[in-house]
């Protein structure tokens, strides 16, 4: 069995240097990586533990009202930040669908993004909220929208020696609400057959000024339902509008059939979940009769 070397850098710069080896992998929560390494599904000779780098563990509210979440901060720690939990309960609820409490006490939002599973539960709302990733590599730092990180199942646009340092959730303005809903055969400890994240922003007259819909488990990556978003903006929520957006999202989905569900079933789930998520946002925003 291949030996595994463990290192624990305390700066991003040291981590980037350590990651230059082709057989190195970064370790955050480890809930995916440790299983893959121990079952010999992934050939790794060096694990670089990011949890002792202060910047990767910090959860801070920025001066402009946005949040900067260290890529290795656990979901459990995020939930214990009362100010974050109050403002971003929808995002937190989606992250709390990841495994059990034991898993959440290790697993990070950064890992959920970088593992690039189409079913990643915390990613749709990060995309809906306009979150960006701060990435460090040998050439310095860059930021990119979270939606541009996953390129396929388990594949990301990050270069081999790049590290996701933080996720920045921009300040949300006006009247807004978000909701992620998924369907799983079991309520806990399961992988979504389909998931839908919705974000809505309204003006004082309750016209929709912003809408975002991102689908999970129905494409090789989290999928933005752009046509459904366009249908909503400028309109007022009504049962008819919600039905049209839900149908559009279902049409935009590109699901496959596998052991967990057929493509047709997944499409129907997208329609139902989109409708329910929009209704949930409407309810939170005090709009009734939808």
């Amino acid at each position: 069995m291949q030996e595994l070397h463990y290192s624990r850098p305390t700066t991003v710069a040291d981590a980037v240097v350590a990651l230059a080896r082709p057989d190195a992998r970064v370790l955050a929560g480890g809930t995916d990586l440790i299983v893959q390494v121990r079952e010999n599904r992934r050939q790794v000779a060096h694990v670089i533990d990011l949890k002792r780098i202060p910047e990767l563990n910090a959860i801070t509210r920025q001066a402009d009202g946005g949040w900067r979440i260290g890529a290795a901060a656990s979901v459990g720690r995020l939930g214990r930040d009362a100010a974050f939990a109050a403002e971003h309960h929808a995002l937190l609820d989606s992250a709390r669908l990841i495994g059990s409490l034991q898993i959440q006490n290790r697993a990070s939002l950064g890992g959920n993004v970088c593992n690039a599973a189409p079913s990643a539960d915390a990613v749709p709302l990060l995309i809906c909220l306009g979150a960006r990733g701060v990435v460090a590599g040998p050439g310095g730092r860059r930021t990119l929208p979270i939606v541009e990180i996953a390129t396929g199942p388990g594949r990301s646009s990050l270069a081999a020696a790049e590290i996701l340092v933080a996720i920045v959730v921009p300040a949300q303005t006006g009247r807004w609400a978000a909701k992620y809903l998924r369907f799983t055969p079991r309520r806990e400890m399961d992988i979504a057959i389909a998931g839908v994240g919705v974000w809505l922003q309204l003006d004082q007259q309750s016209a929709i000024t912003g809408a975002a819909i991102t689908l999970a488990s129905v494409a090789p990556t989290p999928l933005v339902a752009a046509a459904a978003q366009t249908l909503l903006v400028g309109e007022r929520l009504s049962p008819k509008l919600i039905a049209a957006a839900a149908q559009s999202a279902a049409d935009e989905a590109r699901p496959i059939s596998d052991t967990r569900g057929s493509a047709d079933y997944r499409r129907q789930l997208v329609a139902v979940l989109t409708r329910r998520a929009l209704e949930a946002c409407a309810g939170e925003l005090g709009i009734h009769g939808t």
Binding site: Y6, L27, G29, G30, T31, I34, V35, E39, V47, D49, G76, G99, S100, L101, Q102, I103, N105, R106, M189
Partner: peptide, 22 residues
């Protein structure tokens, strides 16, 4: 692999699966 919880211990006070911690 982190599904069953039989190996749960408290790590700095928080429950974790000891099989998923190096």
């Amino acid at each position: 692999n982190g599904n069953c919880g039989a190996c749960t211990v408290l790590l700095d006070g928080e429950p974790v699966c000891a099989c998923l911690v190096l």
